[in-house]
Amino acid sequence: MPRACERYTLRPVSLRIVPPPPRSSVASAPAPVPAAPPRWPGPQGRQLFRQAADGKSPRQVKTSFALQFLHRIVGLEHLNFGIWSEDDPLDVTGLRRAQERLVARLFELLPSGVSSVLDVGCGTGVISERLTALGYDVEGLSPDPYHGRLFAGRLPERRFHLGRFQEFEPDRRYDLLFLCESAQYVWLEDFFQAVERSLAPGGSVLLCDYFTVEFDQGRPRSGHPLDEFLARAEAAGLVLEVDEDVTPSVLPTLRLGQAIVDRFGHGILNLLRDASTSRFPRLAGAAWRLAGPVTRRLDRLDRLLDPEAFAMTRSYRVMRFRSAP
């Protein structure tokens, strides 16, 4: 037999509306406003950058993961070549010694009468920190936000400018422009225009960098032509006071770079390939195809780090220029 329908009884529900409490005649204290987050990365001042000529972002902010690798994984404070001696081991310890030797030479060439310094391409901020400890009024500049964080950690009271040197519109002139392998990243015409905007009358430009002395068709292009750089410097009214060719002394940096690329770059890539082949054989072909662009990039880096080709086509110089008073 079918089950009898159950009966439900609807009971009335009493809804009691509770009125809000009466307003007090005394004004209540306003809720505390949370403190504004600190400005990153420290006291930057105004953002002093013009619109880029190529129509892109005027500050061209970007992060270099290769430099982060050298700092965070390899453990380097300086992100540049080094001047090696015969007793330096070809390892990271030897590289640190060589880099310190190059920086020491730059500090020996600091001109007298300097107060304000702009560290162009300041990297980890270690050079700016040392200049500040010597009593200089230092500001840093880099398009890399990672460098900005490091700079703020070392020198929280100093100004850091996040952007490219070629678009920098300073609100002051500096007695010294310090460039440790930074000039090569700026087109020549833009570089000397930025120098003119930033350098005080009678100021100096102290730099170390490598330059092209002979073009090699099979080698990736890197570095300004040396003769054109010197000609443009002269046209800009800069007098060359110091010019040292230290190319033979920096070549071990490239040999060590090749060893690092081979061990970490190719080594990790080969490990991933082997793992994908053994554990996921059906995906091995796709993995090898995806690894192709990375392999080509590593091969290009190997050619760029070739010390013999570098010695034939490049010249590493330490230079100091002075402008007219």
Rank of each mutant, 00 (worst) to 15 (best):
Q184F: 08
K56C: 14
I73E: 11
S128Y: 06
S182H: 03
D190N: 10
P170T: 01
L230M: 04
P307V: 02
S198N: 07
A4R: 15
D216Q: 12
E196Q: 14
F215D: 06
G285L: 13
I260R: 09
P220E: 00
S57W: 14
L95W: 11
R273M: 05
G94D: 07
L131F: 09
L240G: 04
L76T: 09
V74Q: 09
T277Y: 10
L254S: 09
C122K: 06
L70H: 10
A29R: 13
L179A: 15
E169R: 07
F191P: 00
L102A: 09
V195S: 02
C180R: 09
R50I: 09
M1T: 10
D87N: 13
D87E: 14
L206Y: 08
R289C: 09
R279P: 00
R158E: 00
P156G: 08
T313K: 05
G121E: 03
C5V: 15
G202K: 11
Q166S: 13
A311S: 09
L79C: 07
R23K: 14
A98H: 05
V92T: 08
V261P: 00
Q258M: 14
E6Q: 11
V120M: 10
P248Y: 09
L304D: 12
A104K: 08
D91V: 00
S57H: 12
Y146V: 15
L269P: 00
F107V: 04
R16L: 13
F191V: 01
F192V: 01
F165T: 04
D306Q: 03
P89H: 02
F280C: 04
L141C: 01
R320E: 01
S25D: 13
F321E: 01
L76I: 06
P111V: 12
Y174C: 03
V117T: 04
A309I: 01
Q166G: 08
L256S: 02
P225T: 00
A284T: 04
D144P: 01
P307Q: 03
V138A: 03
G257F: 02
E241F: 13
V92L: 15
R39W: 15
R97W: 10
V26A: 14
T247V: 08
A104W: 10
I73W: 14
G113K: 11
D171F: 05
R105L: 05
F229A: 02
G285Y: 10
K56G: 11
S276E: 01
F49V: 06
D54M: 11
A4Q: 14
R72F: 15
F107H: 12
G94V: 04
T93E: 09
P19R: 13
H161R: 15
F215W: 07
R263N: 09
L177S: 08
F215C: 02
